[in-house]
Simulated scan of single mutants.
Amino acid sequence: MTDQTPEIQLEETGSKGRYFLRGPGGAEAEMTFSKAGEHLMIIDHTEVPDAFRGQGAGLRLVTRAVEEARAAGKKIIPLCPFANAQFKRHPEWADVLKS
């Protein structure tokens, strides 16, 4: 039996980047961000197509960004409404939230 959960991938180009999941039929869920210096990430957009709805894909993407920011000593500004809502639901992420 194979794992049906797609792996989160990261693409970065210059000061922009995205975490994404590629699903059946090429559907992609993504969370885009901008880098503001070496220690700050601005999450600006999260998009989850119908193929991923109800699977926690958006939360997985934001969680991955939080984990990587924490490991790298970075802070996050969640401009995206979805990411901002997730930060409010997860007070344990306060250490990476740029106040």
Rank of each mutant, 00 (worst) to 15 (best):
E28H: 00
H45R: 11
R70D: 05
F33W: 02
A85K: 05
F87K: 03
E7S: 13
I77P: 08
C80A: 10
R22F: 09
K16G: 03
A71Q: 11
R22N: 08
R70H: 12
H39C: 00
G54T: 07
G73W: 09
E11P: 02
K16A: 10
A83K: 01
T32R: 08
A94P: 07
Q86D: 00
N84R: 11
A36W: 05
A65K: 00
L40E: 03
P24C: 04
Q9M: 14
G56I: 10
E28P: 04
G17I: 05
D95W: 06
I43A: 08
G58M: 12
V48L: 14
S34D: 09
D95H: 06
P78N: 01
K35T: 00
G14Q: 10
T13G: 02
K74A: 00
P81Y: 02
H39T: 02
G23I: 13
G58P: 01
L79I: 06
E67Q: 13
G25V: 09
F20H: 12
Q86V: 15
K98H: 12
I43G: 07
P49C: 13
A65E: 03
G56S: 10
H39L: 01
S99R: 10
A27K: 06
H45C: 07
V66C: 08
G56K: 09
I76F: 00
G25D: 09
V96D: 02
R89V: 02
H90F: 10
E30P: 00
N84L: 08
Q4G: 08
W93V: 02
K75W: 04
N84F: 08
A36Y: 09
E7L: 15
G54Y: 09
A65F: 11
I76L: 05
Q9E: 11
E11K: 12
A69H: 06
G73K: 06
Q55D: 09
M41N: 05
T2C: 08
G56H: 11
M1C: 15
F33K: 04
I42W: 08
S99V: 09
R89H: 07
A57L: 15
P24Q: 13
G14R: 14
E28L: 08
V62Q: 03
T2K: 12
T63N: 15
K88F: 03
M1D: 15
I77A: 04
E38Q: 01
F52P: 03
V62M: 10
V66Y: 07
